[in-house]
Simulated scan of single mutants.
Amino acid sequence: MHLLSLQKTLPATSYASLTDALPMLRAVKDAAELELLAAAGAAADATFEEIRKVPFGGRRESEVAADLAGLLRRFGHSQVDFTIVASGPNGANPHHEIGERVIERGDMVVLDFGGLKDGYGSDTSRTVHVGEPTDEERRVHDLVREAQEAGFRAVRPGVACQEVDRAARKVIADAGYGEYFIHRTGHGIGVTTHEPPYMIEGEQQPLVPGMCFSVEPGVYLPGRFGVRIEDIVTVTEDGGRRLNDTTRDLVIVD
């Protein structure tokens, strides 16, 4: 009723659905928003640097997850949205929730954690190993790190979102693990930890400077282990910039 009245009164005006317009308005961040996202990313980096010092072996996933939540808050997060600790075979489920499995020596452990700091989101994944990894575990981790770097290098203005997904996925597929990369490469982040744009096959939205999103390839071997490495990336005028940048090497924990 209101729209028809506006159209009658102002016939030269045009209207768009907010449902369609809002995602792109949110997707492109200004300089102040980028600073807040970078600060959230730095807090997540600090969280990882501290969590790698705590004991893992012999403790439940839920206990390490509680440590993660406490560290995020210590470093300035007002809201913790998720603290995934996926050990051993649980790491093969990319959406594993906090569990009571006791982490064992020899486990690969996927950590995925984030929340809101000063109203803007963080989202980081790193994979650690309890004790010395096997040659295969190192090889898979190196492969995922290479895929994450390939996805990051694909970021530049004008490139379709799906090209970031394709770049990361090609590295994993070429190594023979393509069937074990079972989720999209990334999602947008801002005032919520998941929002447009999405780095997934079929998404032809061009990248625009100021967009922020995750690049998070993974390999998930059923019944055995998983590996995921995730950074938040923003599009610049000539490429991409990571908003969190703690080590992507395989970290050995106790």
Rank of each mutant, 00 (worst) to 15 (best):
E137P: 04
A32H: 12
K53R: 15
R126D: 09
A69E: 13
E201P: 00
R138Y: 10
P217G: 07
V219K: 01
P55Q: 12
L34K: 11
R228E: 10
I172G: 12
D45W: 01
L116Q: 02
L4F: 03
H187M: 10
Y120T: 11
H194Q: 10
D165Q: 14
G121M: 10
A16R: 12
I229E: 13
H96W: 04
E104D: 14
L143Q: 02
L116Y: 04
Y220I: 08
P133I: 09
L22S: 06
R184P: 00
G151F: 00
D238L: 02
G131I: 05
R184S: 08
A40K: 04
P133F: 07
S78Q: 13
Y198P: 00
P133E: 15
I232R: 11
G176P: 07
I98T: 14
V155C: 03
V109E: 07
F152S: 13
T19A: 15
E163Q: 05
Q162M: 02
A27V: 00
E216M: 13
G70L: 03
L34D: 13
S125C: 14
L37N: 11
M211L: 00
R242P: 02
S62I: 04
I103Q: 05
Y198C: 01
G121N: 09
I200G: 10
G178F: 08
T247E: 11
L22V: 14
V227H: 11
M211C: 00
E216H: 10
Q7C: 11
R145W: 00
T246S: 15
I189K: 13
G151M: 00
R145L: 03
P197D: 03
L37V: 05
H183N: 05
T246W: 02
E149L: 07
T234D: 12
G226K: 02
Q148D: 07
G186F: 01
R26D: 00
R242Q: 11
G41V: 03
D123E: 14
A16I: 08
I232C: 14
L6E: 15
V144M: 14
V64C: 03
V85E: 07
V251Q: 11
T185K: 12
V233E: 11
L3C: 08
H141N: 02
S14I: 04
E230C: 15
G76M: 07
A154I: 02
T134C: 13
H96L: 04
L72M: 12
G76V: 04
S122C: 06
L37R: 06
I172D: 05
I200A: 13
L3W: 10
